[in-house]
Amino acid sequence: MKLEASASGVYPIAPTPFHADGRVDVQSIDRLCDFYVESGCTGMTVLGVLGEAPKLDAQEALDVAFRFIKRAPSLPTIVGVSAPGFAAMRSLARAAMDAGAAGVMIAPPNTLRTDDQIVSYYSQAADAIGADVPFCIQDYPLNFSVVMTPLVLKRIITDNPSCVMLKHEDWPGLEKISTLRKWQAAGELRHVSILCGNNGLFLDFEMERGADGAMTGYAFADMLVDTVRLSKAGRRDEAHDLFDAHLPLLRYEQQPGLGLNARKYILMRRGLLSSHALRAPGGSLSAAAVEEIEYLLARVARFDKRAACPPLADKARSA
């Protein structure tokens, strides 16, 4: 079940769950997988930025990827394989594909500055992992400090037949989607799937610009599924109404530094994670932050009952 350019829907970025002592929480991985399947997700992505991949050793990374792949065989799984060197990238990519992954995702190192450097890097990366491994470009300049213009993306896609997907996380980036789809319509660029990240901050309009779905870690993947479905069905106001109800909480989750812990806390409140712990080094939520998240959950629940969480004991809040 290899990744194809026709991929669409929602591929949530899965967190790597940890116990409070830093051990990988495999039972929470299983709950997440079951939730993604039940929510109507069409795939999932592991070992991304949300997956705290740099905090895992090589064997742990493989074990985490394997657990997700084996638990949800019906979902095409994309494995993040970004690494400082191509040897490590190739090793993880080949092992993941052998285990049943659908494809891999590659982010650019922050040392790339010119267009030619970026294009050359992806050509070398594609050669390193093998032409038989479908890959997704991760375009996230706010995090990686690498700016990919539409023309650069066009060159990467054209030069590498194994490139089948773009994870679009530029901001502002709506015009980038429009440009790529315009070239496609004119026959100047082959079709690739465009799934949008950056916590889905602009997913409502990204869908209208030609995106195929979402690839992000917002704690309500089921809401993302509904938003994408409504948008594709042309039910614009319903899609925006649902998205708007979640926007304050979604925005809160996207805070640099704090956001990952907040997201894990919400997933814990939804019964999907045993703990919202980050692996060290990582911060923790203050009592004020917890109160704010609880307040936002209650507000979202007025419109979307999926945000209604049962009362939580004080001890569980700090888990």
Rank of each mutant, 00 (worst) to 15 (best):
A72E: 07
L297S: 03
V46G: 02
G213Q: 00
T111I: 12
L189M: 08
D115G: 11
Y122P: 08
K176Y: 04
S82N: 07
K232A: 14
Q124R: 14
L203T: 05
H168D: 04
S39H: 03
L312Q: 14
R306Y: 07
L92P: 00
A87Y: 09
Y122F: 15
F205W: 13
R181F: 08
I157A: 04
L180G: 05
D241H: 14
R269T: 06
K315E: 15
L50N: 09
V147Y: 13
P141R: 04
A211W: 00
K176S: 05
A301E: 10
R279F: 04
G259H: 11
L272Q: 00
S8H: 13
P141A: 05
H168W: 06
R31N: 08
I69M: 15
M97R: 08
H19C: 07
A316G: 03
L242S: 05
A288H: 10
Q254F: 15
D244Y: 06
G80I: 00
L260I: 08
V81A: 05
V81Y: 05
P172E: 12
D204H: 14
A14V: 15
G40Y: 05
F66E: 15
A308F: 03
G283E: 10
V10Y: 01
P108M: 09
F303A: 12
R229H: 11
S6P: 03
R94K: 12
D34I: 07
V146P: 03
I293V: 15
L142W: 10
A101C: 11
S120C: 06
T42C: 07
L201G: 14
I266K: 03
R299N: 05
R23E: 00
A99I: 11
G282P: 04
T149Y: 07
V24T: 02
D244Q: 09
